[in-house]
């Protein structure tokens, strides 16, 4: 009986797909890893400036976004369980919640960056270049690049989750072929993983 289900696509190889996804995740980890090393070196060279600049960031918004990402990681992890339990309705619901949380994260980010812009802080702004020191320029440069790159990953993750959700509704991703959802989950957890380090390094400097 199982052969019938597998026959529809002979190229389905879950082990290889998963390993491919992990190899991609490693490149992502090292991309952000490189940026973290740049951060570490500049913070080591400008400790006071980084502390001063860190006060500008809002811990509450950072903490709310942390919780949002952690909860969304849980809902997408749960959706892989519910797919395997052949509970399609719950899987779809959990993915919709994940998508909603990702959108809320981006909205928070929009307002957070908006406040910085209102304070005259953006890469290359006059206030940053004329009134603040080299260390602050480095801090805010890294802040915008790293949280911006992270937000870009949220957008990409959103697209992947929407594709997976679509295929689950069509039935091409199901309990026998769950790998697209699992890989979407892996990507989403990667985004969560990066934020776990971004949050203390930028928001919790005191």
């Amino acid at each position: 009986m199982e052969h019938v289900a597998q026959h529809s696509d002979p190229h389905y190889d879950p082990e290889a797909s998963k390993m491919g996804m992990w190899l991609f995740i490693f490149t992502e980890l090292l991309l952000f890893g490189g940026l973290f090393i740049v951060y570490a070196v500049y913070r080591y060279l400008n400790p006071e400036a980084f502390q001063m600049a860190g006060h500008e960031l809002n811990i509450t918004i950072g903490a709310i976004n942390t919780i949002i990402l952690l909860v969304s990681s849980m809902t997408i992890a749960m959706s892989t369980s519910s797919l395997q339990k052949k509970n399609k309705g719950l899987t779809v619901l959990l993915l919709e919640i994940t998508i909603l949380l990702a959108v809320i994260f981006l909205i928070n980010k929009y307002f957070e960056w908006g406040v910085k812009f209102d304070h005259g802080i953006w890469p290359g702004s006059e206030h940053l270049l004329n009134d603040l020191g080299k260390g602050e320029i480095l801090f805010f440069g890294l802040y915008f690049v790293m949280t911006g790159l992270h937000a870009l990953h949220i957008v990409v993750g959103l697209v992947i989750i929407i594709v997976a959700l679509n295929k689950i509704q069509k039935g091409t991703v199901n309990a026998d072929r769950p790998l697209l959802l699992e890989n979407a989950g892996l990507y989403w957890h990667l985004v969560d993983l990066i934020w776990i380090f971004l949050f203390p390094l930028f928001y919790l400097i005191h």
Partner: peptide, 22 residues
């Protein structure tokens, strides 16, 4: 305090890798 925050972040990422990422 930096060390403490980094230790928490490391433990958190181990949890995410082990359980959420299967």
């Amino acid at each position: 305090s930096v060390l403490g925050a980094m230790i928490f972040a490391t433990v958190k990422s181990v949890l995410v890798l082990t359980w959420f990422m299967h």
